[in-house]
Write a protein that binds this DNA or RNA. Structure first.
Lengths: 218, 218
DNA sequence: TTGAAAATTCAACGCTTGTTGAATATGCTG
DNA sequence: CAGCATATTCAACAAGCGTTGAATTTTCAA
């Protein structure tokens, strides 16, 4: 079980599990809710994926490869296009964020749910460290190295804390809690990823520059 | 029931519930785990607080007043100390963050757990909007107005998106997932709130300035 | 068309859940 | 000490949980 499952109903199970896990977390969802949402008997999830935790991992892993690929190719592209002094901080952060927006704009609601699931996991003291590291640390470290080159002389400590701030801003965006909608009286919308990134990129780039001590103009 | 409960065991129930809810979320904790951790029968939680959801709300509300008070007085203090042109962006953000650090440094582990619970709720698509708004929106809007005065000409949209980025960075810090510890190879520690804020303040202040268009020197 | 393999459902299990009413212990006031 | 209110435990409930083995349907190559 759980090697590859291209069956139509098993894919549907993953879709519904993705949506519900993102909304209520691992413990807030029952296999019966998932099966019911997928129009399927409860035993089918176990047949395809094993235990509940295996299903959770399967959902989390399903889109990770695609996501890492598109982010990495965005980084490589901006590195190619940049001159011999490498890409700017803004360009690197843009390569880190824009693929997420594109994932949303495909109209595939599944991607939006998946990103909300990442937000849930990344912010969880229980799941956060282990699950995120395994799938995303390699890529993140590559981005941090690119940022280090764009910020000569930056210390490790400053670099990692700055990434932490970027990661936090991104995580809250992906969670789509709707809080900014209410706070701003509707002027900002949680679902508007484009607006979120249009503000997040200059915001975080400025933070990196100040904290990591950009001395001269780039 | 649930009017006021200064009984020693009911306070212990709140403490344990606080810790477990912060770690595993609402659905990831059973009343029996809480009762067991508090050294108490399972029925006692219902006797003091009613339904499970009522207990959850009681935990969430318990420290909210103190937290809002200390943040507000920090804001008022920096407004007094500032000249007639008002406090700087850095000073306002500092007033927003430092009370959280002090809450941690009292050595009371309960405060750290409570802040992690806030992180869980604030990042949850299900709980986030309703629960956070009721207790914290009034204070947050006061800080945003102070920031508006420090950033003349800033648009609502820019202001709210910038606060969103600040809130995200803070939320991930409060969650204490330990991810930055692993990512940085131990150079940064999730438990080190002071280091987190020392980096977060200049980082986010720079973001506010750039996005909200600081034209002249302040 | 047949038959094996994969996919799906059916039925049930032992266990845990939140909740509640009654019984008991504790603390306090007169 | 009596007596009452509060605090706490005991015992049990109906419902829902994840999981599993057997039965049934579907798929598809020979």
């Amino acid at each position: 079980m759980s090697k590859k499952s291209p069956s139509p109903k098993s894919e549907r199970i993953l879709d519904v599990a993705e949506e519900l896990f993102a909304l209520h977390g691992y413990d807030g969802v029952t296999l019966r809710q998932i099966a019911n949402g997928a129009g399927v008997d409860v035993a089918l999830a176990s047949y395809h994926f094993g235990k509940k935790l295996d299903l959770f991992n399967a959902v989390f892993q399903r889109r990770a490869g695609k996501l890492n690929e598109s982010r990495l190719s965005a980084l490589r592209a901006c590195q190619k296009n940049a001159g011999d002094q490498g890409p700017t901080v803004e360009q690197i952060i843009e390569a880190f964020l824009r693929p997420l927006e594109i994932a949303q704009e495909t109209g595939d609601q599944g991607w939006t749910n998946y990103l909300a699931l990442i937000a849930y996991i990344n912010n969880s003291p229980y799941w956060g460290q282990k699950m995120m590291s395994k799938l995303f640390d390699k890529l993140v470290l590559e981005f941090i190295e690119a940022l280090r080159q764009a910020l000569p002389g930056a210390s490790d400590e400053n670099l990692y804390w700055c990434y932490h701030n970027l990661s936090g801003a991104l995580t809250l965006t992906l969670a789509q809690t709707g809080r900014i909608d209410k706070l701003s009286g509707g002027k900002c919308r949680s679902s508007d990823f484009e607006a979120a990134y249009n503000h997040m990129i200059p915001f975080t780039a400025a933070g990196f520059r100040v904290v990591c001590g950009a001395t001269g103009p780039h």
